[in-house]
């Protein structure tokens, strides 16, 4: 250990981390306690787990598996339910952007994987979220082949519509809405893509077909029903609103009443 590291360890805080450990899919799992030292306030939550994992590796123990990639809050790969809240205590950000200054020194932090039937645990804190890709594959696109597009400015889109579409398009597909929903519903995720395309002229030709296909796929994959708890909106790192869910319901109703 370098001198700098020793100093950092002395300066930093200690936490007790209770982590869900599960060897693999369909294997039993449990919460296990670990102590981690030398955590400084500006460290990100995942860097704290990195420190813990380095420690475990040195001790010859198996590191904790968790997902992360960009570590700047845009890829949607990181997950985790921290003390019962998806993406942790700080609103409007992903787990990777949560900083340790949000946790009082010496506290115990419980970390569980995203839980839903449609998100089976793969290992420890890693879950399989491919169900979200399947919802998009069912119709979350404009059917246009490469090379077939007209000049971009031949399709005018009012600023308000473009802004509305962008609000919805900001979704990073992390699945926190599902994890946070008391019913494990994917309504916020599904509706965000539906309203993005419904707000744009490009999305109109397939609008009805799309909403039906995506809603039905969402149901088929075993996500729950939405009970308007709005917890999804509160944990959403991109602060996507439940107004999109209302829009999805409108569109689905219209699509089935007047197909």
């Amino acid at each position: 250990m370098s001198k700098e590291e020793t100093v950092a360890k002395k300066q930093g805080s200690r936490y007790t981390v209770r982590v869900w450990r599960q060897a693999g899919k369909d294997k039993p799992g449990q919460l296990v306690d670990y102590q981690v030292d030398g955590i400084i306030p500006n460290m990100s939550f995942l860097e704290m787990l990195d420190v813990l994992n380095e420690q475990l590796t040195k001790e010859g123990k198996e590191a904790i598996a968790f997902d992360s990639d960009c570590r700047e809050g845009i890829c949607g790969m990181c997950s985790l339910v921290i003390d019962g809240v998806a993406h942790g205590p700080h609103s409007g950000c992903t787990t990777c952007a949560v900083r340790m200054r949000d946790f009082p020194s010496g506290s115990t932090i419980t970390i569980e994987p995203f839980r839903a039937k449609a998100f089976p645990v793969i290992k420890d804190l890693v879950v399989d979220r491919s169900a979200l890709d399947k919802i998009i594959a069912a119709g979350g696109y404009v059917s246009v082949n490469a090379g077939a597009a007209p000049d971009a400015n031949s399709i005018l889109v009012g600023k308000e519509s473009a802004d509305r579409a962008m609000d919805a398009a900001a979704c990073i597909g992390c699945g926190a809405c599902v994890a946070a929903c008391p019913n494990a519903s994917a309504s916020l995720f599904t509706s965000a893509k539906i309203t993005q395309l419904a707000s744009l002229p490009q999305g109109q030709p397939e609008r009805k077909k799309r909403v039906k296909a995506m809603v039905e796929e969402m149901d088929r994959l075993g996500f729950g029903d939405c009970s308007n708890h709005g917890e999804c909106e509160a944990v959403c790192p991109k602060e996507i609103g439940i107004n999109h869910i209302a829009q999805m319901r409108r569109d689905y109703l219209m699509a089935t009443l007047a197909p």
Binding site: G147, A149, L156, A169
Partner: peptide, 21 residues
């Protein structure tokens, strides 16, 4: 062509009030 393609896919590019990119 890239801009045309992406606009056609529904990429919400920033717009002027008149609707142009």
């Amino acid at each position: 062509n890239i801009i045309d393609q992406c606009a056609a896919q529904g990429v919400p590019f920033a717009r002027e009030y008149g609707g142009a990119l």
